[in-house]
């Protein structure tokens, strides 16, 4: 069970959180301008690194805030992003 550092509530057990996948994939400003391939890319394609991953989490059972952290997918080391 990981312990994740909520920026507002401090460290809490992983089960209090929801995982939001890769960070930094913004909702396109004008989805209508994207062709099918580019839109599918936004919808479905994400990095799957073996190593450091920058990802979104939400403290669902606590303050309900979304935040970004860096997690090593092999060792589960965690860093808050600079």
């Amino acid at each position: 069970m990981m312990s994740l550092p909520c920026p507002h509530c401090g460290p809490r057990d992983e089960t209090e959180f929801g995982y939001g996948g890769q960070a930094g994939v913004a909702y396109p400003a004008r989805p209508g301008d994207l062709d099918d391939r580019a839109w599918a890319e936004y919808l479905f394609v994400r990095d799957n690194p073996r190593g450091w991953s920058t990802e979104r989490w939400v403290h669902r059972a606590g303050c309900r805030q979304w935040f970004v952290l860096r997690r090593h997918t092999v060792t589960h080391e965690i860093e808050s992003p600079a």
Partner: peptide, 17 residues
Amino acid sequence: CSIDLERVPVGQGVQGV
């Protein structure tokens, strides 16, 4: 409750499970 409640000072509260 898995939260470190010992460290919650009097007058403070937490949301959790």
